[in-house]
């Protein structure tokens, strides 16, 4: 199971839950499972084509998935996945 950390602005759609766990082989699978569990999140994460909105930054561990294999980046059991809001010109710092 991978654990996904949900940023504060999205927690209104998860009944306040700060984390979500899912058993999926790739980042995209975990994000899809999140959106299926909390349908209100769908338009906030994905565009009309079902692609991850490209201003949303997702990290696996310390790595931006954009520098890996995007939503096809594999996730191992116990991996932390983070969704980070892009404020003030973007992100280049991992927490």
């Amino acid at each position: 199971m991978a654990q996904l950390i949900i940023p504060t602005p999205l927690r209104k759609f998860t009944a306040g839950a700060a984390t979500f766990t899912a058993d999926a082989p790739h980042v995209g699978g975990v994000l899809n499972a999140l959106a299926e569990a909390h349908p209100g999140l769908q338009p906030h994460l994905f565009d009309a084509d079902g692609s991850l909105r490209h201003f949303i930054r997702v990290y696996v561990g310390d790595e931006d998935i954009e520098a890996l294999d995007g939503v096809n980046t594999p996730v191992a059991a116990g991996t932390d996945i983070s969704i980070i809001p892009a404020i003030a010109g973007g992100i280049s710092h991992r927490p």
Partner: peptide, 26 residues
């Protein structure tokens, strides 16, 4: 903490003391 590096650098140059907070909490 996820503010852009340019902003953090400008603020440091201008002498501001920065407390960086969780990127998850905006």
């Amino acid at each position: 903490e996820n503010a852009s590096p340019e902003r953090k650098r400008i603020l440091q140059w201008l002498g501001a003391e920065l407390h960086l907070t969780s990127p998850f909490e905006a």
